[in-house]
Design a protein around this nucleic acid. Structure first.
Lengths: 242, 242
DNA sequence: GAGTGGTCTAGACCACTCA
DNA sequence: GAGTGGTCTAGACCACTCA
């Protein structure tokens, strides 16, 4: 049994949770058990488990053990709302770094979001947004590759995806459903966004549709909580409870 | 120098940051320095400082020290949007617990939000929302006491504040500006919401106005990140960048 | 009583920064 | 070289849960 760092232990446990080896509600190995198995001290295992708990992937019950978190209950709004974050208006210099653009096959989750078959070719674009030199958000975007062949020829560091879809491929986005969730940064996110592991982030996930109701894009944006807040103005007559 | 637990150290440092003893950008005492001063081990000080860092109140720079976090940059949207979380529609049993109702004097922050003088009497209502037996959000609400004398006579566990203002005091809320920020739970919040310290929460803060533009209410709601997500539908024609 | 997580100790060595 | 945070050890005692 070789030695592990706490980051490797996080990695290993996360994977076993994500691939279903541990199901929601399952008990994870105890701290003492894992520390013996891995040949590290209990505090090192605890540091790893702390991260899973803070990240919402696990929860502890004193005297009982540590368990895999259960899926979220979903809450819906009952009226159309619009929501936009615009950072460009406040005079901050902004830039975009293209981290990755490739064709991938739709897995089950992506296929479900986009209403396509599993295995269908998707275009995957991964970018980092900077404002005044600081990384501010990490963005993931997926859409059917058939919609926009050779999109890699366009300048994805200075043009927006939506603008390219509209002007180069004549695809009109009509509406988007957006979901906002508070999360904490994992190792990759913390490195890319220059924040500590477990720092608060806003996860904005989104499915965009054309006028015919076809899903065009699935997107996930992670905003730094220490640099961003989201603002909206709500007319009362569309509210019904407070 | 008496002994301290890590929670007491968090408390002490938070207070010194909040009352301005340490200014944004200031270096906090080093971990070794504090552990000597307080007569605890360095790991205990680290556990406290970890919490400040995760909570966004401080940041670390290896080789340099731990520093008080700098204030957030604000980002604004440029169009009216509406936004509502409605949990009642999905068939969960909900209830409200009134934790506190009292008259307080406006401090500088509250006076600024509500456009009143420092020291003016405010009504303060603090409630906990439950859904299916689980605590789901912790709510704070402040408004000028003169608007609604003897509001404590009404049933604040079964009626909404807005509804009472409208029907009992003939005060009409016209619009509300709302701010959404991902944060992590502190000790009090974690206890009230039954989540671990540093669990992700959605902070929704709000100022509501009547038709004449007078500020009526300042509110702060903290939603459990593991139980809630916020949804909106955005028409593309009101978007301008992606 | 046996097992669990919660907190704490008194060290150690590392990587990093600055003078 | 001196000081900082980052990680880790090999214990300890506590509070809690269940049988």
């Amino acid at each position: 049994m070789e030695k592990h760092t706490y980051l490797q232990i996080i990695e290993a446990l996360s994977e076993q949770i994500e691939n279903g080896h541990y199901q929601p509600g399952d008990r994870l190995p105890s701290e003492r058990e894992l520390s013996q198995q891995l040949g590290v001290s209990r505090m090192t295992v605890r540091q790893a488990m702390n991260s899973l708990v803070t990240r919402g992937m696990a929860y502890r019950q004193q005297g009982l053990g540590t368990f895999v978190a259960k899926p979220k209950v979903e809450h819906h709004v009952d009226l159309l709302t619009s929501f936009q974050v615009s950072m460009e208006r406040i005079g901050l210099k902004h830039s975009t770094k293209l981290l990755s653009i490739e064709q991938i096959r739709a897995n089950k989750k992506l296929a479900g979001k986009l209403g396509v078959n599993i295995g269908q070719l998707l275009c995957y674009i991964h970018r980092l947004r900077m404002h005044n030199g600081d990384p501010i958000s990490l963005e993931y975007s997926y859409f059917p590759a058939s919609l926009c062949p050779h999109i890699e020829q366009f300048d994805l560091e200075h043009r927006s995806i939506y603008e390219i879809l509209e002007n180069e491929y004549e695809i009109q986005i009509d509406v988007a459903d957006q979901f906002f969730e508070p999360v904490v940064a994992n190792e990759y996110e913390s490195e890319m966004l220059s924040v500590p592991i477990n720092a608060p982030l806003m996860l904005v996930s989104r499915v965009s549709y054309d006028v015919d109701g076809n899903a065009i894009e699935f997107g996930k944006d992670l905003y730094r909580g220490d640099k961003t807040r989201f603002v909206s103005r709500s007319p009362r007559h569309e509210r019904n409870e407070r």
